[in-house]
Design a protein around this nucleic acid. Structure first.
Length: 803
DNA sequence: AGCACGCCGACT
DNA sequence: GTCGGCGTGCTC
């Protein structure tokens, strides 16, 4: 038997299956999707079996055998193998990267080079000191200097150097005792015990009470006060059998369903949506629904009722949520409804915990997965529905290889499983809405809020006017008054700061320069917690200078509005207010996100101040004011989606206010009050916004009218990278159709990162059947010449941002 | 001649 | 990605 194996090597020349002979011992158990260890070159690597066959084109003499089968059952289904192929084609990634991204990181390989001592007596003294009497020692224990000596010894045959393939995270196991089922046999064993073995006798008595049962060994020893030795003695006499079994870590205690998980009442709109989607579930139609519901319209209840139906049919469901809204508030809703059938996958879990959740899915112990982007790969075999909540969120797109979009993967998987996809949003991406209007997706609308609350009153404040009137603070008069009002009435306020491009940087008041990163073309950001300046691109850190590095003036100070600075100003204006700050700095530790939200929910603070991460999922009855400190910072991005993102964010944020009995108020501060994205977000006027934005996209030839592909280049030398990018652009325009537009080469928004200059080309096209082929050829040119000159090139077939 | 270093190609 | 093989060029 021959196995086709994709090896764990991300490189162009080996991005294809290699054939291996399958030894008899594992031929019966190996399957497509199995992980194996194989010899590759002169080392051992992990690989995935993608196919099995009887004949190989490679001469038998050159075939090497599979070294070891790593799992008793395959970790990937045939469906996932096809999915990986599809990802390689559509995102231009290596097959191995597509395969690895579908699995928890615990299943990735860790390689360790080891020295195996063959002739200990020939080992030089200096090495023997390190090995002492061990036969296998990690190479890194010897240190750099001894490497040549080791190599020489290896060629002489005194030692051998091998690469060991290991699991990244240990799979937690415990020993379990299986007590035999025959009472008579236990009796016999007791009879044969010498008088002195009183411990064994006690243990036998205990076993008789637990006949035929399986109990963790450590529990047995604890319950009977016996030791391992006693236990082993009885095992060898045949009273019980012991095995190693995988145990799950417990990230949180399972919630039992509340009210038996009874669904809530539905509005007419919700009922219609559920009914329509149910039809697709019943008929196993792979239809995509766009559930367009205003904030607070109860999309989650629609999801849950569809999931209930899916579960009743014995099928499974995936619910994707943006990472930042994957809070216990959201997940516990699913856990309360579906109880222990739910697994949660998010970045807060340790690698081991992620693996445990994945195993629960693989073993069929759970039927619903709630998780971020990568949960779209949950190894279900009989999916009944895939849901993407907040489908417009850019976090569904992975920014490094494989550059997949969870929405596309979901739709692809749904085709295989014959099940519907639900894309839910209050502010759908233009792409999805356009597809819904064209009838590619089916549009379902929830125009009413579920509890019939009115949408919050939104007031847009022109900050230029404030400045004119002498208010130089970051709070407009209107917002300050509104906050004061909440403090007096004991209600809560959420303040939102769009931090991007607006964080604190250090500026010299004399010469006007800001402190730049030495490696990147970007200003350094001031971090109060560490009292240092940091680069958000390369991680460079330095002390805050006392004088300007350019002109040596002492008049240097912090500018911009970071959350820390807002917090200080809040304290100055409202000394009695209890403020919680939520941003990357305060949520870094595990569980901090949840803790802050709980504190706010419990009324331990009056004001919650935060960045992007508070825009979603916040749902507390006492929030009656939402303030947006600067609505238009995103509008300044050189990105065709800037207006769309601004509109989406403002709409989402406004939706946090007055979701319950009390009416909500929203104050939006901006320097561009007349911009359509700001104006239309005020009334959550999606349709008018859609119409204007579509006009712009059409005029400037952007999605959804055109497809875009972004090609980025980087090199230490500015001239070199601009030359190569120019060559690439010329090559593309020569090969692609006349209606295809190539923009560039242009310098990237951040033109230098980590001392490498960055250039890019943007391809805009409507129909370009040759594109895949042309890009493949471009990659060949890259490999054969540019790569050797130190250029790196990356292709994103559908970038979520081009800035 | 002996070796360090960098480039190139192979990996079943 | 990682290795060995091989060429170049430098040193003893």
């Amino acid at each position: 038997m021959i196995a086709e194996v994709i090896t764990d090597v991300s490189a162009h020349p080996v991005d294809r299956p290699f054939d291996y002979a399958v030894p008899d011992g594992i031929a019966e158990v190996i399957e497509p999707g199995s992980r194996v260890r194989v010899p590759f070159g002169n080392r051992k690597v992990l690989g995935f079996v993608t196919g099995l066959k009887e004949e190989s084109d490679v001469p038998a003499s050159r075939l090497k055998p599979v070294d070891e089968l790593l799992d008793p059952e395959p970790v990937l289904t045939e469906e996932m193998l096809r999915l990986a192929d599809w990802m390689r084609e559509t995102t231009l990634c290596f097959e191995i990267d597509a395969l690895q991204v579908m699995l928890p990181s615990a299943l990735r390989a860790k390689y360790e080079k080891t020295v195996h001592v063959i002739n200990p007596e020939k080992l030089p003294h200096e090495l023997a000191e390190i090995t002492r009497d061990r036969r296998v020692v990690a190479v890194k224990e010897f240190g750099e200097g001894l490497l040549p000596v080791l190599k020489r010894l290896a060629s002489e045959g005194t030692v051998s150097i091998e690469t060991a393939v290991r699991q990244r995270t240990n799979i937690k196991k415990e020993r379990v005792l299986h007590i035999i089922g025959e009472a008579g046999r236990l009796d016999e064993i007791r009879g044969s015990l010498p008088k002195i073995a009183s411990r064994q006798a006690e243990l036998i008595n205990w076993m008789e009470e637990h006949i035929g049962m399986s109990v963790p060994s450590k529990d047995v020893m604890e319950a009977t006060g016996t030791t391992r030795a006693t236990l082993n003695a009885l095992i060898s006499k045949g009273a019980a059998r012991e095995t190693e079994e995988e145990v799950y870590r417990k990230p949180e205690a399972g919630l039992m369903p509340e009210n038996g998980g009874i669904p809530g009442p539905l509005t007419d709109e919700q009922a219609t949506a559920v009914g329509t989607i149910s039809g697709a579930v019943d008929n196993r139609r792979d239809e995509t629904f766009l559930l367009h519901g205003v904030t607070g319209s109860g999309k989650t209840e629609v999801y849950m009722q569809v999931i209930r139906q899916v579960l009743d049919q014995g099928r499974e469901a995936i619910v994707l949520v943006p990472e930042i809204s994957l809070t216990p508030q959201i997940t516990s809703r699913f856990k309360r409804r579906f109880g222990p059938l739910v697994a949660v996958m998010h970045s807060g879990l340790s690698a081991g915990e992620k693996y445990d959740e994945w195993r629960k899915v693989q073993r069929g112990e759970v039927k619903v997965v709630v998780g971020a982007r990568s949960a779209v790969f949950a190894p279900f075999r009989n999916l009944g529905v895939i849901i993407l909540d907040e489908e417009h969120e850019s976090s569904y797109k992975q920014e490094d290889s494989p550059r997949y979009h969870a929405r596309d993967v979901a739709i692809r998987r749904a085709e295989e499983h014959g099940c519907p996809v639900i894309l839910g949003s209050a502010t759908p991406s233009l792409e999805s809405y356009a597809r819904a209007k064209k009838g590619v997706y089916k549009l379902l609308t929830l125009a009413e809020r579920a509890k019939k609350q009115p949408l919050p009153e939104v007031q847009v404040v022109d900050m230029r006017e404030e400045l004119k009137n002498g208010n130089r603070s970051m709070f407009s008069v209107a917002l300050a008054e509104a906050i004061r009002h909440r403090l007096d009435s004991g209600e809560q306020t959420v303040l939102f700061l769009n931090r991007r491009g607006y964080s604190s940087f250090v500026l010299c008041r004399d010469c006007g320069t800001s402190v730049q990163c030495p490696n990147c073309d970007i200003s350094l950001t001031y971090h109060r917690a560490t009292e240092r300046l940091q680069c958000h691109y390369c991680g460079h850190e330095e002390r805050v200078p006392l004088t300007c590095p350019e002109c040596e003036s002492e008049h240097i100070r912090f500018f911009g509005t970071g959350t820390q600075k807002v917090q200080e100003e809040l304290h100055r204006l409202f000394p009695e207010a209890r403020v919680l700050r939520m941003d990357v700095d305060t949520t870094r530790q595990k569980g901090a996100h949840e803790r802050l939200l709980r504190q706010f929910g419990d009324g331990e603070a009056d004001i919650l101040l935060g960045t992007q991460m508070i825009a979603k999922g916040l749902d507390f009855p006492n929030i009656t004011l939402v303030g947006v400190l600067s609505a238009d910072t995103m509008l300044r991005l050189a990105d065709f989606r800037a207006a769309e993102k601004t509109f989406q964010l403002l709409t989402q944020v406004s939706g946090r206010a007055g979701r319950h009995e009390k009416e909500g108020e929203v104050v939006v501060q901006t320097y561009a009050p007349e911009h359509y994205a700001v104006e239309l977000a005020k009334d959550q006027a999606y349709e008018p916004f859609y119409a204007i934005e579509m006009g712009n996209r059409k005029r400037y030839a952007y999605p959804p009218f055109y497809f875009v592909t972004l090609i980025q280049f980087s090199h230490e030398d500015l001239m070199k990278v601009s030359e190569v990018a120019g060559n690439a652009a010329r090559y593309l325009s020569g090969k692609l159709g006349p209606d295809t537009v190539i923009i560039g080469p242009t310098a990237a928004e951040v033109a230098r990162v980590n001392n490498r200059y960055r250039y890019q080309c943007l391809i805009k096209y409507k129909k370009e059947p040759k594109l895949a082929g042309v890009l493949t050829d471009l990659v060949k040119i890259y490999r054969s010449s540019w790569m050797k000159e130190g250029i790196t090139m990356s292709i994103d077939m559908n970038p979520s941002t081009i800035s």
